[in-house]
Design a protein around this nucleic acid. Structure first.
Lengths: 211, 211
DNA sequence: ATAAAATTTGAATAGTCATTCAAAATATTA
DNA sequence: TAATATTTTGAATGACTATTCAAATTTTAT
């Protein structure tokens, strides 16, 4: 028997179904939230039987982990592609802000689903994901740190604590998706423009060399 | 019959029990999270019967709303007391940062319980609390906006979008309690000092009047 | 001390949940 | 076409959930 081909075809069929289920999970998380997003609800969203989810995913935890990984990969791909097209650290930083906010406006369902998973899912030891110290696992976070470090190296940026600035910036971008009081009051373009101006004040050296 | 005294004594006994239950709810939310924080678990934490919670609170939603209100009131009282002792807008801003971070370090259980409720509780229409536009209901948020507005009025601060800066600052303080990757890497004093320096760069006018 | 009111409990109810499993349906292989 | 493997389903299981309620206990008022 040809194991390789069998494996590939299994993977093909199975992966298609898994992708469909993950897509249904994202839609369900956005629509009714993590708590009510039972396998029954996700299955109904996908038009399949709940037992089929159990067949393709070991358990609900694996489904949510895979959904989270998909969401992180897709947003990172979008943002990093636009960051890489910029040249200087300052421009990369602006691209990071613009792309991060644009992605959330483009895919509000995904932004909501991400929040739902991060603040609801827990490890087998019952440690919440939002408290996990993901050591450099988030590609967006490491990219952001790299931009900041590079800007300081070239002298374009002044001195600051990279971890602190990276955290502030990422949570500022993240906040716009979750805080309706904010997004309802300030439109995305205004928020992006103001955020870029504020970040420049934080990290970019003044024109006059007094620092 | 003296309605006033009867009412007051009822209130006294009942409020004592309600306070005990709310305290147990906070401890339980911190220990095992919102999802597993069933009335049975909260009752066990308080050493009472689950039915007694149903007697003192209309339903679980009311218990969580009261717990949330208590958490917001207590943190606001702590922070605002220290903010009021400062004189200038800049000093008030620094006091806001110091007190906000200090409170979370002083009461990590409360900080966690607050996050758990905000990101899990939903209205009867299934709208998540974190998406609610609480119109000026959060006393900390309005105090922060007032400080920023006052600073611009006196000319101590430069021009900026008050809503955006307030949101960034509050989420930066908030973030330190939830993000273990951050609090595990940067100690509180360093974070507070760096945050104050960065906020100054954002909002305080340069000494030279070039703006 | 007695009656009335408030408080507390244990048990029962009805619902939802993830997961399992044998059987049915479909696809693949020989 | 026949045999085999994979995929899908409906139903069942057991555990946990918030809430209700009659009865028991405690507190309050007379």
């Amino acid at each position: 028997m040809d194991n390789r081909r069998t494996k590939e075809e299994l993977t093909f069929i199975s992966e298609a179904r898994r992708a469909q289920i993950i897509h249904a999970a994202i839609a369900t998380l956005d629509r009714i939230g993590f708590q009510r997003a039972s396998l029954a609800q996700i299955a109904k969203e996908a038009g399949i039987s709940p037992a089929l989810i159990a067949y393709h995913f070991r358990d609900k935890n694996e489904l949510m982990d895979q959904t989270l990984a998909t969401l992180l990969e897709e947003s990172a791909e979008y943002v990093l592609r636009r960051v890489e097209q910029a040249d200087t650290p300052k421009q990369k930083l602006h691209a990071f802000i613009d792309a991060g906010l644009a992605y959330q406006c483009l895919h509000p369902q995904r932004a909501t689903a991400l929040i739902e998973i991060v603040f609801h899912a827990r490890t087998p030891d019952n440690v919440p994901y939002y408290k996990l110290a993901d050591d450099g696992e988030d590609p967006l976070e490491s990219a952001l740190r790299q931009i900041l470090t590079e800007g300081r190296r070239t002298g374009e940026f002044r001195e600051f604590h990279v971890d602190v600035v990276a955290s502030i910036l990422q949570s500022a971008v993240f906040e716009y998706a979750s805080n309706r009081g904010l997004s309802g009051k300030v439109d995305p373009d205004t928020y992006a423009a103001e955020l870029k101006r504020l970040v420049d004040r934080m990290v970019v050296k003044d024109r006059r060399g007094d620092e």
